[in-house]
């Protein structure tokens, strides 16, 4: 059973990562920086519980805030560039963060052992959960409480005027400006919210794996972050969670016997999905259909 709980943990954290990219994608920005915010959150939360002795909840709040602050700072200069240039700029940021942690040593002696990040060796012994006697199931439930919470908030935001404004900017920046929408405020705020979600996800990730290292926060993770909302579709937050379950549960775990060939399959799948369903698994017509079948509610689109 623990195997499935562990899998659910991975899926939960990856859903958070995907949701952090989802809100940025709504504004039409393709950001490869989400893995960087995730890394910042992971190291920050780990250091707070291990070195500063904080409890998990305040540590996660801090990692989330830090993720938001970094994303906001990245957002201002990065969002002045568009399209491919933005992809490259955010990719460069993500790699810079990774290299920073590759070189980051901050060890403190705790009860005879040295703890804390140690460059390329990574940051071991983030043992808040085992030390406090949490079972795998409890950790899994803890993670999914956050996933559901974040999904609920984003779902509500999506239906608010702010959500409509995000989508308006994503569709046509020129028209959005022309009806008085401040592009910088909208894009930077979306980036900041995305950074908060990624920082939270990273903080959780650090604690359930107990061992983080720079290599986990590379381009592959940044690609995953984008792949979930793109595969799942931008119609609603549910697409992202469906895609995370599919990719992590089926592709990565279910096909483990294929070894590294899975990555090839992953690439092929994205190409295939983008051709077959350019708007994602759960595109607007599919969502309307689901609503009609299960909701009976008028399809307000």
């Amino acid at each position: 059973m623990d195997f499935y709980f562990g899998l659910a943990q991975i899926i939960g954290v990856h859903t958070l990562l995907g949701l952090s990219a989802y809100i940025v994608l709504l504004t039409g920005q393709v950001s490869m920086a989400q893995a960087g915010f995730f890394a910042v959150g992971a190291y920050a939360a780990g250091m707070l519980t291990v070195l500063a002795g904080w409890a998990i909840l305040p540590a996660l709040a801090a990692s989330s805030l830090l993720g938001a602050a970094v994303a906001c700072a990245v957002g201002f200069p990065a969002l002045r560039v568009k399209g491919l240039m933005l992809v490259i700029a955010t990719l460069a940021f993500g790699e810079a963060v990774r290299l920073f942690f590759f070189n980051f040593d901050y060890q403190v002696a705790r009860g005879g052992v040295k703890l804390g990040p140690l460059g390329g060796e990574g940051f071991r012994q983030i043992r808040y959960f085992p030390e406090n006697g949490w079972t795998t199931m409890q950790v899994m439930l803890f993670i999914w409480i956050f996933v559901v919470l974040v999904m609920a908030i984003l779902w509500w935001l999506d239906r608010s005027r702010y959500g409509a404004v995000l989508r308006a900017v994503g569709e046509d920046e020129l028209a959005a400006q022309s009806v008085g929408i401040n592009l910088t405020a909208v894009k930077v705020s979306a980036m900041t919210i995305g950074g908060a979600i990624a920082g939270l996800g990273g903080g959780i990730y650090a604690h359930y794996t107990t061992h983080i290292e720079h290599a986990s926060f590379g381009i592959l993770l940044a690609t995953f972050a984008l792949a979930y909302p793109i595969l799942g579709g931008l119609g609603s937050v549910f697409g992202t969670v469906v895609a995370a379950i599919f990719v992590q549960g089926f592709l990565v775990e279910g096909l483990r016997f294929l070894g590294d060939w899975r990555n090839l399959l992953f690439g092929a799948l994205i190409v295939l999905a983008m051709n077959l369903r350019p708007k994602g698994f759960l595109d607007a017509p599919t969502l309307r259909w689901i609503r009609r079948v299960f909701g009976g509610k008028r399809g307000a689109a």
Partner: peptide
């Protein structure tokens, strides 16, 4: 230049 994937109502809202 409308926001095509928003409803008519939402186009005015934003």
């Amino acid at each position: 230049r409308l926001f095509g994937q928003l409803t008519a109502w939402q186009n005015l809202w934003v």
